[in-house]
Design a protein around this nucleic acid. Structure first.
Lengths: 168, 168
DNA sequence: TATTGTTATACTCTATAACTATA
DNA sequence: TATAGTTATAGAGTATAACAATA
């Protein structure tokens, strides 16, 4: 018995803590998805950008930055990358000459389809050890916990830490 | 319907992917635990170190580094921090004069007790929206998935990415 | 004056190597 | 020769600020 067990209970093992298990698994998810995407030449934030852009083409960088909750400075780099690979195009915005209107190329659409397939594999790797019914129950609980813990849907918190819009 | 839905199905929403939800929640766990620990002046890796040291005092830095799967260079900094706060002591090792034998101070034990309490709160924040029975089921599933995805128990993968022992 | 996109700078973290003292 | 601990260096990633063009 530990001398510091003042409340009468033994300190809990890390692997009995849901927060630790989720932390372990969450870190692994980012790393593994990144590796799975490597053959496509993109990273998870690029995948998010392509997905958001597919939802509605012609958006400006600022609009996409707001939706993904990334700083607009970061968006420049993401778009540079994707444009360099020929996956997106910057066109002139029809109403605002300061802004760019972004569009997917055919290659960009193709890469997005493949990336979605990789994400499916990725999900299967994660929850494949559970039967189909349990997978469904787990998904519901995760959605519930994401909401009860204040997470915005479809926004990865790693991208939104930076102060976004304040220009002092 | 999207023009790239070649396989006949619409791309899945990010918040319907267990991998994305776990990724969101996992990132939040690290950030929030870090904030919760701030009043104690320590960070999550320090908490891990204190826990491992409480399991068995007198361990060397290398032993602790192996168990936590951190590089020994990183361990130096963690021990420096904790020693600077008066939470651990470096004593002479009785059998190997190269090594230090590490011990908790009374203050270190006290901080560990409080940190365990904070970790309990942290867990409750995460799963509090589920009833007690569901919390139990979720914990089982998370333990199963951690194992089926190759995670070592009680080792946070963020700390073990660095090559550890190779001295070329 | 505020906003879009861009660039440059600084800061943090971490990875790698190299050094010492012992074994 | 190998190992425990330490220190220094360099690189990646990220935050902050500043800028030009346009609204």
């Amino acid at each position: 018995m530990h001398p510091f067990a003042t409340v009468g209970d033994v300190p809990k093992d890390l692997s009995e803590r849901p927060s630790f298990l989720i932390g372990q698994l969450g870190y692994l998810m980012g790393k593994r998805f990144s590796e799975l995407l490597r053959p496509l030449g993109i990273q998870p934030p690029h995948f998010g950008l392509l997905s958001y852009l597919a939802d509605e083409e012609g958006q400006t960088q600022q609009q996409l930055a707001d939706r993904m909750s990334v700083h607009r400075n970061v968006m420049v780099g993401l778009v540079d990358d994707l444009q360099g690979m020929g996956l997106v195009e910057r066109r002139r915005h029809p109403e605002d000459r300061r802004a760019h209107a972004l569009y997917l190329t055919d290659e960009g659409r193709s890469v997005l389809v493949r990336a979605n397939g990789i994400a499916d594999e990725h999900d299967t790797m994660l929850v494949g050890a559970l039967d189909s019914e349990d997978q469904g129950q787990l998904l519901e609980w995760l959605q519930l916990l994401a909401e009860s813990n204040g997470l915005a849907p479809k926004v990865h918190p790693a991208l939104q830490d930076a102060g976004k819009s304040q220009t002092p």
